[in-house]
Design a protein around this nucleic acid. Structure first.
Lengths: 226, 226
DNA sequence: CCGGAAATGTCAGTTGGCCGACATACTTTC
DNA sequence: GAAAGTATGTCGGCCAACTGACATTTCCGG
């Protein structure tokens, strides 16, 4: 099990556990641009994404938004507030038409009590997210914008990349603004850096999708030795 | 229970659970400057800090270190790698003479199985840490160095502050380098910013300890409206 | 209580990346 | 298929914060 895929909790659950979970919760549909929940709302439910894509982002007083991570099919979100109490601090913003399974706090606690194997998985997911967040912090502190963008792309491709010969095809579309919100920079700078990376031959862009020339990219991202 | 104190897991456990945990583990002493574990080592143990202070920091290829958080008496560390597998990615660096309780992965799993209340506490701790890390990321992205330092001080004082009349006395000593490593800046800039904050009357410094003039400080940190 | 080490204070020079402003391209919607 | 909205590309001016270098103060072990 590659560490990158530990967050796909539905896939990792045993069949019976998954059935039990699905029968406990209720299904909801959302279309692009809607919110599953917003910062400030009370946080009494846990969600499992069956289909689609949701971004978890934290608004700040300045109006800027930081994208903490994306959730893809199979992933869980909204757990932290349920475990910890207090209201939501993040938005769950639907990127493309999605289906989510919704469980109340008590339904979920009951499920964990009855399915100890799944409980272990939940702790793994939390641990994995903590590591990813730590990684992001280290990047923000140490690396310049160019390196941060390269590392972001490599992180995403580790989980959502499709190998096409020598290259890796990133199977999701991101706007420059979204990239900027993930690495802490501005839209303009992202545009500039991407075309710089393209000129250098680290990646190519084809109708809003990213192709990574993987060997060069990995080498380049491991140390900013320009 | 203030959210700031959710991480003091030993204090929040029931007496019986705490006894059981302590009898399971083995005690170890460390003196200042030693490491409980280092990045790269295999991560097969969980630790509970009984006494002292430990900083959890992540080294990077550039040699710089980022301090992700401090652990104080009662807190747990080393969990993520145990839950998730793989080696340590962080150092656990002892700041002052400390005593830690050490449990192997299997001892800890067994404990959680037998003490479901504590299990809930563990999930709370992880959730709380995730929130703190998210908060740090948002700060890094949105705020200038001055604001980041103010918010760091307020965060620390929420958990480790002692009220002295109107003011709050921060009950720990930090070097400027350590502050720099937490907010992602340089030692020199921290020195400059602290004396600027002192001049402005937001805080005062007395033999390496920080006194916060809390009302002004809170107002100032909530929006960088200079 | 002394000497080396660590921490703090200060400064001038340099620069990465932000800001604002605008032009072009793509892509929905009715 | 025209119009409106959203995304991308490009530029010059500007400033916060980094770098490196040094002086001074405080701490701590023997």
């Amino acid at each position: 099990m590659p560490l990158d895929q530990q967050t796909d909790i539905l896939a990792r659950m045993s069949g019976e556990d998954r059935e039990a979970l699905i029968s406990l919760g209720t299904m909801q549909r959302f279309s692009k641009g809607e919110f599953v929940f917003r910062a400030g709302a009370p946080g009494k439910h846990v969600y499992f994404l069956r289909k689609g894509r949701v971004k978890i982002c934290q608004p700040s007083h300045t109006g800027k938004e930081v994208i903490l991570w994306f959730c893809f099919a199979g992933e869980m979100f909204g757990l932290a507030e349920v475990a910890q109490g207090g209201g939501r601090v993040v938005h769950a913003h639907v990127c493309e038409a999605s289906e989510v399974l919704k469980l109340s706090q008590s339904q979920f606690s009951g499920f964990l009590r009855d399915h100890p194997d799944s409980l272990h998985l939940v702790m793994q997911v939390l641990s994995c997210r903590m590591r990813t967040l730590s990684e992001v912090i280290v990047n923000l502190v140490n690396d310049d914008v160019e390196t941060r963008i390269m590392k972001l792309i490599l992180r995403l491709s580790a989980r959502h990349g499709v190998h096409v010969g020598q290259d890796i095809h990133l199977d999701i579309t991101l706007t420059h603004q979204e990239i900027a919100d993930m690495v802490g920079t501005t839209r303009q700078t992202v545009t500039g850096m991407l075309s710089k990376l393209k000129r250098r031959g680290f990646l190519s862009l084809e109708n809003r999708r990213i192709y990574i020339e993987s060997p060069e990219m990995h080498a380049a991202a491991s140390g900013p030795d320009h």
